[in-house]
Amino acid sequence: MTDRIEVRRTIAAAPADVFAVLCDPQGHVAIDSSGMLQAATGEPVTAVGDEFVVHMDREALNDFPDMGRYDVTVRITEYEQDRLIAWTILGQIKPPIGHVYGYRLDPDGDATTVTSFYDWSDIDQKWRDAGIFPVISEPALRATLGVLDRTVRRGYPRG
């Protein structure tokens, strides 16, 4: 069994247009297929170490009904303009879980091949023993790429 999921989709847009959505906290909310991301607070990210807050609602997954609404901090761990963005999630859970989400963008003519990845290979042993990974499934990652495609084609961030 692997500790990483990767899915790909070609989007008919330039890498810069796709990357703009992925760097914007509101973009994360706009493309989330799980329904957990309710809102975000913060500025678009521009470098490793940048952070923003996402207001979550775990009831959307109904896997932990007692979690309800909570906030997490997204911390950027990898950043290459128009090519790569990855982040980990910081919250009130101790020790921090240590899973990583991200996107790799590869130019493909007038389009961009977007690889979405979710990696829990370095999670804390406490969370590995809990048997809760992956939290987000491969179909959910694929769905988010579909929403990303639609969002970019609609001219994000246009209302």
Rank of each mutant, 00 (worst) to 15 (best):
M1C: 08
T2I: 04
D3A: 11
D3N: 04
I5S: 04
R8N: 10
R8I: 11
R9Q: 09
T10L: 01
T10K: 10
I11G: 01
I11T: 12
I11P: 08
P15V: 09
A16N: 06
D17H: 04
D17F: 12
V18P: 03
V18A: 09
A20Q: 06
A20R: 15
V21N: 06
P25F: 15
G27N: 06
V29Q: 02
A30M: 09
D32L: 08
D32E: 06
S33M: 06
S34C: 13
S34N: 01
G35F: 11
M36G: 06
L37Q: 07
Q38A: 10
Q38T: 04
A39L: 09
V45W: 12
A47C: 13
G49E: 14
E51L: 14
E51A: 02
V53T: 14
V53F: 00
V54H: 05
V54E: 04
H55D: 09
M56Y: 06
M56W: 14
D57E: 14
L61V: 03
L61N: 02
L61I: 11
L61K: 08
F64D: 03
F64I: 08
F64C: 15
F64Y: 12
D66Q: 14
R69I: 11
D71T: 06
V72F: 14
I76S: 04
T77P: 09
Y79E: 13
Y79T: 02
Y79M: 07
E80A: 02
E80P: 15
E80N: 08
D82C: 08
R83H: 12
R83A: 07
L84N: 00
I85M: 08
A86R: 14
W87Y: 06
W87C: 04
I89W: 01
I89Q: 15
L90F: 05
L90D: 12
L90T: 03
I93G: 03
I93C: 01
K94M: 01
K94Y: 08
P95L: 13
I97F: 11
I97N: 13
G98N: 00
G98Q: 00
G102A: 09
R104D: 04
D106N: 06
D108P: 15
D108S: 05
A111S: 11
A111K: 11
A111I: 10
T113K: 06
T115H: 09
S116A: 15
S116V: 02
S116I: 06
F117H: 12
D119G: 14
D119S: 04
S121Q: 09
D122S: 14
D122M: 10
D122N: 14
D122G: 15
I123Y: 08
I123F: 10
I123L: 11
K126G: 04
W127D: 05
R128N: 05
R128S: 03
R128I: 00
R128Q: 05
G131K: 00
G131A: 00
I132W: 00
V135W: 03
I136T: 00
P139W: 12
A140N: 13
L141R: 09
R142N: 07
G146A: 05
G146F: 03
V147R: 15
V147Q: 10
L148T: 02
D149P: 02
R150K: 07
T151E: 05
R154I: 00
G155T: 12
G155N: 03
Y156P: 02
Y156Q: 02
P157L: 05
R158M: 10
